[in-house]
Amino acid sequence: MKRAAAIAFVVLASVSCGATEPVASSAPTTPGSPAPSPAPSSVPPSTATTPASPRTPSPTRTGPPAFSAKVTKISRDRLPYSWRPGCPVPYQDLRLVTMTYWGFDDKPHTGELVVRDTVTDDVVTVFRKLYDWRWPIRQMKLVDAYKADDYASIDADNTSAFNCRRATGSSSWSKHSYGQAIDLNPLENPYVTADGGTAHKNAKKYASRPMSGKGVINAGDKVVKAFANVGWEWGGYWSGTKDYQHFSKGGG
């Protein structure tokens, strides 16, 4: 009887100890030492509580303004010398083109040309290219600034278009009278007779071609091609007399 009671006691003691045994840990601990701290979380802290770093503004690039052009009707009083009754085109069919051009001083300027209403798109297309190329133009004023005196306008190296006048050495109307011709940098690109003569002394050094120089036009260059692309012909291709400044719609 005592033997059975002793065996029962041993069994009960074993069950009791198994129920209270702690779960095994991967890190051994010594009695009385503090519990290990939990491992840091791998999840990054929320950015909602983190102040954003100030962004450094990107540097701005400054430069010449983009090309601009405005086409408007022109009043009779803007053409006091270049138009008169009897001209082949009524002034109501003419347009004022106010646009940007690149100057000989390597700066942008605003100039004016008067052309026929049917060719304004051509003119804007070409002069946009000239400006984007930084191709220089001396100045661009209405020929009325010189009282429609073609000689005075050319002598001042003025780029101009409409002028109701006869063609040089002819009784026929010039293409300028129809607003379908432009003289571009007439000093650097003079009218040269078959014998090599020029009417303007300040243009004699520019009488031959090909020639390099600021604002000079040569056969097959990008200026000639730009005009050709919109159907304008160059006077530098004429036989005999050469008019290097002259571009006209359809020639002539």
Results as ranks from 00 to 15, higher is better:
residue 1 M to I: 07
residue 1 M to H: 14
residue 2 K to A: 14
residue 3 R to G: 14
residue 9 F to H: 07
residue 13 A to Y: 08
residue 13 A to I: 12
residue 14 S to N: 05
residue 22 P to D: 07
residue 23 V to Q: 04
residue 28 P to Q: 07
residue 30 T to I: 05
residue 33 S to Q: 14
residue 34 P to H: 09
residue 34 P to E: 10
residue 38 P to N: 09
residue 38 P to L: 12
residue 39 A to E: 08
residue 40 P to W: 00
residue 40 P to D: 05
residue 41 S to H: 02
residue 45 P to R: 06
residue 45 P to W: 03
residue 46 S to D: 11
residue 48 A to M: 09
residue 49 T to F: 08
residue 50 T to N: 09
residue 51 P to L: 06
residue 51 P to R: 13
residue 52 A to V: 11
residue 53 S to E: 07
residue 54 P to T: 06
residue 57 P to R: 13
residue 61 R to L: 08
residue 61 R to W: 03
residue 62 T to E: 01
residue 63 G to Q: 12
residue 63 G to M: 08
residue 64 P to G: 02
residue 65 P to R: 09
residue 66 A to P: 04
residue 68 S to K: 07
residue 70 K to S: 14
residue 70 K to Y: 03
residue 70 K to C: 05
residue 71 V to F: 13
residue 71 V to R: 14
residue 74 I to K: 12
residue 75 S to N: 14
residue 81 Y to S: 14
residue 82 S to W: 15
residue 83 W to S: 01
residue 89 V to D: 08
residue 93 D to P: 03
residue 94 L to C: 07
residue 95 R to L: 09
residue 95 R to H: 14
residue 96 L to N: 06
residue 99 M to E: 00
residue 99 M to S: 01
residue 101 Y to Q: 01
residue 101 Y to E: 02
residue 102 W to T: 07
residue 105 D to H: 11
residue 106 D to I: 01
residue 107 K to W: 06
residue 108 P to A: 04
residue 112 E to F: 05
residue 114 V to I: 10
residue 115 V to Y: 04
residue 119 V to T: 10
residue 120 T to E: 00
residue 122 D to Y: 00
residue 123 V to W: 02
residue 123 V to S: 05
residue 123 V to E: 03
residue 127 F to L: 10
residue 128 R to L: 07
residue 128 R to H: 11
residue 128 R to S: 13
residue 132 D to A: 13
residue 134 R to V: 00
residue 137 I to C: 00
residue 138 R to P: 01
residue 142 L to W: 05
residue 143 V to W: 00
residue 144 D to A: 09
residue 145 A to V: 03
residue 148 A to Q: 08
residue 151 Y to K: 12
residue 154 I to Q: 15
residue 156 A to P: 11
residue 159 T to I: 01
residue 159 T to Q: 03
residue 161 A to H: 05
residue 165 R to E: 15
residue 165 R to Y: 10
residue 166 R to C: 10
residue 167 A to N: 14
residue 168 T to S: 14
residue 168 T to M: 06
residue 169 G to R: 15
residue 172 S to H: 12
residue 175 K to Q: 13
residue 176 H to A: 15
residue 180 Q to W: 14
residue 183 D to L: 11
residue 185 N to K: 06
residue 185 N to D: 04
residue 186 P to I: 08
residue 188 E to N: 12
residue 188 E to Y: 05
residue 191 Y to H: 15
residue 192 V to T: 15
residue 193 T to V: 09
residue 198 T to I: 07
residue 198 T to D: 07
residue 199 A to V: 10
residue 201 K to Q: 10
residue 202 N to L: 11
residue 207 A to E: 05
residue 210 P to M: 12
residue 210 P to C: 13
residue 212 S to L: 04
residue 215 G to C: 06
residue 215 G to W: 08
residue 220 G to N: 03
residue 220 G to I: 03
residue 224 V to R: 00
residue 227 F to S: 03
residue 227 F to C: 08
residue 229 N to L: 13
residue 231 G to V: 12
residue 234 W to C: 04
residue 237 Y to E: 15
residue 239 S to T: 10
residue 241 T to E: 07
residue 242 K to S: 12
residue 242 K to V: 12
residue 243 D to N: 09
residue 245 Q to W: 02
residue 252 G to T: 04
